[in-house]
Design a protein around this nucleic acid. Structure first.
Lengths: 348, 348
DNA sequence: TTGTATGCGTTATCAT
DNA sequence: ATGATAACGCATACAA
């Protein structure tokens, strides 16, 4: 007890100001200082003022680690995405992070590079931090991940896809529908020999759903699907170029091509121009993603815009509702199917 | 003691498997299980095998929160950037995160939107997690932030800038030099009426350093700097367009323009083309950033490529070295000045 | 509205 | 190489 009156011995603690020191200085009990931060409405104005003064004078920063241990739930949320820097997920991360930060939650972030092992490893580490909730991308996980998540017993969100039959909260859209929408757009414009170019990145299963939507739509129209697969893991622009060169050598060549994403489409567009083709007269081109450059290309690129940022924001809202940090309408809405927008430009 | 033999009471703990349970099942002491994870070389092969079997059977996940509290340092590193989704910082975040993850550290991320208040708020929250280290962007901080960081007594990195006189580890480049490099490039090509277009985003102080480098270089060459400032906080493409329209009305108009970044440059390029100008014959254009679309524009855009990903990687390495998680050459290298690359394309 | 006693799950320290 | 014990700083449960 006598020792406790002194500055903490610097051997373990980093010598930081603690809640107890604040309490002593303010002449109140520790729990009152705790309440001052977590349930301020339960503390009288007078006490709060006294406490706040000491907090500022001492530069006290609450130790969230200790709080997390005591309460078994930290104000921290983990998110695993395939990558951070690509044009696809960045906005989702931003929306997720911003919405969380607005309510005092912090974001723990990791990327999987479309590898389920890396995802599992990230989820495992995250769980060690007792996160309040977890968000992962789509529904392709290893068994280990599924088990970890099932045992964790915290709110779980899957973003960028929409699988009503799965238990986690879903915030995304049906990639299959994007394929349908793209194919319909081209059919409506009168194109008939419509090809689809897959993604060169292995592991992008969502792109295969889009392909299936395209293929079914063509068959329904009495047309034969025509799928080109670039060599595995070639760089996006290159893969697009490769696809375009291959397809335009066929007789007859396609009169329209749907690329798995805008990067591939841009590569294809440039290759065609260098070969002296006029787009869209000689061949129409569509992408997916509405990356920043889509409107800057010549011709500007027709594409489908996913609700990237919105996905992140809504995912965060559902998390916050599950945690009671946000008013929830009855049970938290588990199925959140958002709309993609077809952005028609010059390339079709 | 008798209670402790049972499953933990579910009132507080989330009912997760604990280190003690593993220890009991394996017939060893708790500390041995702890060592199995943190200093495996200090545990005999026999014990490790026994422990590992139990860990897997029970699905034990170490509680990093408890560990963090006990050891006063969590394997977590905070990073604050102006934004996550922009083309600028995304690669730095990715490089930082990947390098850290490779050594068992997790990334806590927040964005400041160029606001020093938001940065301070993020730093404060991060510190509550006893991070092993912290990374912030450039050297423009509030006083509060400076104080928090100074008191924190953990490795601190400033990325995306290079200020030798500051105490934190610096990983970045001299924006002033980029301005010099850009201006020299244009002077060498024979351009003489060279204008500079500032960023429309307030708070981007680094862009002002680039402008200063440009201005000094022009003066040294006996030429007058010519700076255009777009209306504040207009969208990047719009700001570029606005600048181009304004500048090309002047007589004589500039024969070359340096834009504060590639977004502005793209907006300017498109506006000029719509006005029927031929680039670079009528006016050369340069940007900064080497965004993905730079090589896709027609004409493709000459620009300066910052070492974005490298900055993140080296920052992480310096952090890991400071923490002893990576072999360090003598004291950790505090000043890390990286090179930008001028990428010459068709627009100049 | 305020306070007291206790334990969260791990690691540092000291011992063997 | 392995173990016993005592923190780490806070929030829960209960009491006043």
């Amino acid at each position: 007890m006598a020792q406790d009156q002194d500055r903490p011995r610097k051997r373990r603690g980093a010598g930081r100001v603690t809640l107890n020191q604040v309490a002593r200085e303010a002449g109140v009990s520790a729990i009152s200082v705790s309440r001052h931060f977590n349930q301020p409405e339960q503390v009288s104005a007078e006490l709060r003022e006294r406490i706040q003064a000491v907090v500022e004078r001492l530069g006290y920063v609450p130790n969230l680690v200790a709080g997390g241990l005591a309460s078994a739930r930290g104000r921290i949320v983990g998110m695993v995405v395939p990558n951070i820097s690509g044009p696809i997920f960045a906005n989702t991360i931003q929306g997720f992070s911003d919405t969380l930060a607005g309510h005092g939650y912090q974001l723990l972030l990791a990327s999987s590079y479309f590898s389920t092992e890396q995802e599992e490893s990230a989820v495992r580490s995250f769980l060690g931090w007792s996160p309040a909730a977890l968000a992962v991308t789509s529904h392709f996980h290893s068994e280990g991940t599924e088990k970890l998540l099932a045992d964790a017993d915290i709110p779980l969100v899957e973003v960028w896809d929409y699988q009503p039959r799965r238990t986690p909260i879903q915030v995304g859209f049906l990639h299959y529908d994007v394929g349908v929408m793209s194919a319909r757009h081209l059919l409506d414009k009168g194109y008939r020999r419509i090809a689809f170019v897959q993604n060169s990145a292995a592991g992008d299963f969502s792109a295969l759903d889009r392909r299936d939507g395209y293929a079914d739509t063509l068959r329904e129209a009495g047309l034969e699907p025509w799928v080109f697969v670039p060599s595995s893991d070639s760089a996006p622009f290159e893969a697009g170029k490769q696809a375009m060169q291959h397809l335009m050598k066929r007789t007859p060549w396609p009169d329209a091509i749907i690329f798995a994403n805008d990067n591939l489409a841009a590569g294809g567009l440039l290759a065609a121009q260098r070969a002296g083709l006029r787009m869209p007269e000689d061949c129409a081109v569509m992408g997916f993603g509405d990356y920043a450059f889509a409107e800057l290309l010549l011709p500007s690129l027709t594409t489908v815009r996913p609700p990237s940022r919105e996905i992140g924001e809504i995912a965060a809202q559902r998390v916050l509702q599950s945690l009671g940090a946000l008013p929830a309408e009855q049970p938290v809405q588990r199925l959140n199917r958002l709309a993609c927008k077809l952005v028609e430009r010059e390339s079709t």
